[in-house]
Write a protein that binds this DNA or RNA. Structure first.
Lengths: 143, 143
DNA sequence: TTCAAATTGACAGCATGCTGACTATTTGTA
DNA sequence: TACAAATAGTCAGCATGCTGTCAATTTGAA
């Protein structure tokens, strides 16, 4: 009998679901999803990158990121500018509105994080972060 | 600036993605997804329940579980039997084939778990499980 | 230089997860 | 009993995430 209730994979999926749900509710009035926020967070660090580079940095599938950008574009938060060195590619850039939202959205994210992590102590948060970073290992071998 | 690379929410989503991907690859030859395995794992504990009860036990949305059962039904692993006390409901039951797959699929799940958790020690696994259980808290208040 | 191979982004197709609306049925109350 | 409210399951619609395929373009090697 598989003890699914105590399996780490199952628990991660449910914890992920809970966090996602909390975040989703808070972002509702911006018409944004947690994934869209995630992409914006990378763009606030550096924009003007191509979709492929963004896909690698964010570890979001390159076909998925196309749709994400479509929707952020519709919301007027990012734009696709022509790439000066490659006519196949775009430079994905924040609009003024996309840039301006940083402070407001980050405050919301901080609130969500607090609510989400309320059940555990700050020490446990540190331990969890450390363990998760180890588990994130993606491309090992298979070149 | 939001340090998304070190935020627990982002890390959980990527760790979840990695685990899901490993599991998905291993289940490919059965035409099953990790979610379908998860539902089967609950059915191996107890079947004959209604979709709503299953939805509550598994914390899978009731509309999502309908589709999951559709596909498991097509694969011949579960069946929808009439509910003796409620003509609106079904009893979701494993077929012989669904029952027989338990051992084989659980062995695969064990292998996936091992591969997935390889980057951390058994002690860390215990700590992680404990923390995740605390973070799973779902319905607190709002009755 | 030329042309095959690789790359960029788009699209179709499928599964999951959620919302909201709908039908059929059951429950609980006046 | 009669009828409103609640419940079981379905469906449409949307976002994410992935696979596979395709056209346009760039790259690299003969």
């Amino acid at each position: 009998m598989y003890d699914i209730e105590n399996s780490i994979g199952f628990l991660i999926s449910k914890v992920y679901q809970r966090g996602f749900g909390i975040f989703k509710d808070e972002l509702e009035r911006y018409d944004l999803t947690p994934q869209q926020f995630g992409l914006l967070a990378f763009l606030w660090i550096e924009d003007g990158l191509s979709q492929t580079v963004l896909s690698q940095k964010t570890q979001i599938d390159r076909t998925t990121i196309g749709g994400l950008i479509d929707r952020l574009e519709k919301l007027g938060l990012v734009g696709r500018l022509p790439h000066p060195e490659d006519r196949r590619a775009y430079r994905i850039c924040l609009t003024d509105r996309g840039t301006d939202l940083e402070k407001e959205l980050c405050a919301i994210a901080a609130g969500v994080t607090q609510k989400f992590l309320a059940p555990i102590t700050p020490e446990e948060q540190t331990v969890l972060r450390t363990i998760l970073k180890k588990l994130r290992t993606s491309q090992e071998g298979t070149p």
